[in-house]
Design a protein around this nucleic acid. Structure first.
Length: 467
RNA sequence: GGCGACGUGGCCAAGUGGUAAGGCAGGAGUCUGCAAAACUCUCAUCAUGGGUUCAAAUCCCAUCGUCGCCUCCA
C-alpha cells in the first residue's frame, strides 16, 4: 500500500517517495521563542509528530529536524521591555516549549537547531546569493531580489505583480522591488549582533531555516512542514533562497496544517487571543489535546471551545474503556466468538493503514479504532477472559500508540494507595452482602471525591483512577 | 483588490459520481439494591438556486456565509 501526501506545492495528493530509500528527511518550522506556546503551536507540533510516527510505523527511518528561532525583533523587544538578556529569555522559552512537547507525548526531534548556532552557514549562504546576483547589499543590510527568481511565488500560487506589497505596511524605499526581503539586518546599538562581510548584524527570519536545512539535512529534503500561515512569505522565501543556490528542488513535499482558531479569529500571539499549552494541560490530559487533533483533519482549521474539549474528553474516556480487563466471573468466549474478535482486530489494523495512507486521514483512522474498541467491549460483555481480550487489545494499543496516544490511567497519588483502596473495596463487598447500602454508597461517594471510580457488577466491583 | 480553503444531523467530523463512517449529546431498553460503565435499538439527504448525468453531498455555474494568506505568526 502506498502512502499519499497532499503537497501544497502541487495542490494534489501525491504518492510519497523519498530521496533515499527507506529514509525521510523532514523539517518542521518551530516557534519564535518570545512567549509561552499556545494551542496553535501544539496543534502543529502534534500534526507533524503524528505524521512522523506513522512514517516510522511504515518502516521509514526519519530524521526529524525542528528549529527554534532564537534571535529576532520580537525577542529583542520583549527582552528590552523586561530588562533581561535576550539570549536567556529565549533559553527560558525554549525550555518551556520542550516541556510542553514532552507533556503532549511528542517525540523529541533528531535535532533542534537554533539560528544562533548556525551563523557561519547563514553568512555563507548570503554570500553565495550575492555572488549569484540573487541578493544585493544596502547600507549593511542584504536583501533578496525577487526579480532574480523566475518562479518566485510557485508555492503560494501568486505572482509578484499581483501582490499588494506595502498595502498594509510601509515599504522600505531602499529596496529594488517592494517584495524583496531581508537576508541580513544591520545591527542597531545594543542589539545582539554577529560579524559579517557587511558589518555587524543578524540574519533575516527566512534565511535561517534555509541554512539549518542545509546544515542538518542537506541540499534537498523530503518533507517540509509548518502552519499554513507560513506558506507566504516564509516558505516561499525559503524556496527562493535555497533553490537560487543549489539549482535543485528544495523540498519534495510541503505539508501545512490548518490554523487553530478561537471563536472568530485565528489564535495568535500577536492578536493576544490565545490559550497557552500550560493553561490547557493544567486542566486536561495531553491525550485530550492529541485526540482533538486526531478527530479532525490536519489541513482544516480547528476552533477551540469548552464544549468541544468536553466532547473530546468523553471520547477519550471511551477509548480508555476498551483497555479494561475482563468482567469478574467471565466464563470465556467460544472458539467462534474469539475468532470473530481476532478478525475484527485484523480488519481494524487494515482499515487504519488505509486511512492513514490517504494523506494521514486520522479522523477515519480513529473511526476504525473506535469500532475496534466497541468490538472489544462487546467481547467483554459477552464474557471474554483477560487473555482473550488481550489479543485484540494488543492491536488496539499498537494503533493508538502509533498515533501517539498514551491512554494511561492517571495514578493520582502513586501506587502506594492501591493496597488501601483494595482493602476498602473488600470491606465494602461485605457491607453489600449485608445489604448495608447506606454505608457502601458512602464509601463509593467518598472514594469518588478522592478521584477513584468504583463500578459494581453482580459478580463484584472494580475500581480505577478517574482520568 | 488578489490568492486559497471551507459550509454534512443539537455539537465535532469522515466521505469527491451510485442513494450518508465514527465520536459527543439526546431518546428507548438490557444489566444493577442504587449509581456508574458497558451492551442493544434509535436519531441527517449533505448552505441556497440553477445545470450536467440513468444516477451528485460528491462535477459545472451563480448566490449567500465563514475562515486563512497578501505584515511578524505554528
Amino acid at each position: 500500500m502506498a502512502l499519499k501526501i497532499y503537497n501544497t506545492l502541487t495542490r494534489t495528493k501525491e504518492e510519497f517517495t523519498t530521496l533515499e530509500p527507506g529514509k525521510v528527511r523532514m523539517y518542521v518550522c518551530g516557534p519564535t521563542v518570545y512567549a509561552d506556546a499556545h494551542l496553535g503551536h501544539a496543534m502543529s507540533a502534534l500534526v507533524f509528530d503524528i505524521a512522523r510516527r506513522y512514517l516510522e510505523y511504515k518502516g521509514y527511518e526519519v530524521r526529524y529536524v525542528m528549529n527554534f528561532t532564537d534571535v529576532d525583533d520580537k525577542i529583542i523587544n520583549k527582552a528590552n521591555e523586561l530588562g533581561v538578556d535576550p539570549f536567556s529569555l529565549a533559553e527560558q522559552y525554549i525550555a518551556g516549549y520542550k516541556r510542553n512537547l514532552e507533556e503532549l507525548n511528542i517525540k523529541p526531534a533528531s535535532v533542534n537547531p537554533r539560528a544562533t548556532e548556525d551563523m557561519p552557514q547563514i553568512i555563507e549562504m548570503i554570500q553565495q546569493l550575492i555572488y549569484n546576483d540573487s541578493a544585493y547589499v544596502v547600507d549593511g543590510d542584504v536583501y533578496y531580489s525577487v526579480d532574480s527568481d523566475d518562479d518566485y511565488g510557485k508555492l503560494s500560487g501568486r505572482s509578484i505583480q499581483t501582490m499588494n506589497a506595502g498595502s498594509r505596511i510601509q515599504v522600505d524605499e531602499r529596496k529594488e522591488h517592494p517584495m524583496d526581503f531581508a537576508l541580513w539586518k544591520s545591527a542597531k546599538p545594543g542589539e545582539p549582533a554577529w560579524e559579517s562581510p557587511w558589518g555587524k548584524g543578524r540574519p533575516g527570519w527566512h534565511i535561517e531555516c534555509s541554512a539549518m536545512n542545509m546544515v542538518h539535512l542537506g541540499d534537498q529534503i523530503d518533507i517540509h512542514g509548518g502552519g499554513n500561515d507560513l506558506i507566504f512569505p516564509h516558505h516561499e522565501n525559503e524556496i527562493a533562497q535555497t533553490e537560487s543556490i543549489t539549482g535543485k528542488p528544495f523540498a519534495r513535499f510541503w505539508m501545512h496544517n490548518g490554523m487553530m482558531g478561537l471563536k472568530d479569529d485565528k489564535m495568535s500571539k500577536s492578536l493576544g487571543n490565545m490559550v497557552t499549552i500550560d493553561q490547557f494541560l493544567s486542566e486536561h490530559p495531553g491525550d485530550v489535546m492529541r485526540l482533538w487533533v486526531l478527530n479532525g483533519s490536519y489541513r482544516s482549521p480547528l476552533t477551540y471551545s469548552e464544549a468541544v474539549i468536553e466532547q473530546t474528553t468523553q471520547g477519550y474516556k471511551r477509548l480508555l474503556s476498551a483497555k479494561k480487563g475482563a468482567l469478574p466471573g467471565s466464563a470465556g468466549l467460544s472458539e467462534n466468538e474469539l475468532a470473530k474478535l481476532q478478525d475484527a482486530a485484523q480488519a481494524a489494523r487494515q482499515g487504519f493503514v488505509e486511512a492513514m495512507d490517504d494523506d494521514f486521514n486520522t479522523a477515519l483512522a480513529m473511526a476504525t479504532i473506535y469500532e475496534l474498541g466497541k468490538t472489544i467491549n462487546q467481547a467483554r460483555a459477552d464474557g471474554a477472559t483477560d487473555t482473550q481480550l488481550g489479543t485484540a487489545q494488543s492491536v488496539f494499543d499498537e494503533l493508538t500508540s502509533t498515533l501517539g496516544l498514551k491512554l494511561e490511567e492517571e495514578t493520582a497519588v502513586g501506587t502506594s494507595a492501591d493496597a488501601f483502596i483494595d482493602l476498602l473495596v473488600a470491606l465494602r463487598r461485605d457491607l453489600r452482602a449485608e445489604k448495608n447500602w447506606a454505608m457502601s454508597d458512602e464509601i463509593r461517594d467518598k472514594l469518588k471525591s478522592l478521584g477513584v471510580i468504583l463500578e459494581d457488577s453482580k459478580d463484584g466491583s472494580t475500581w480505577s483512577w478517574e482520568s
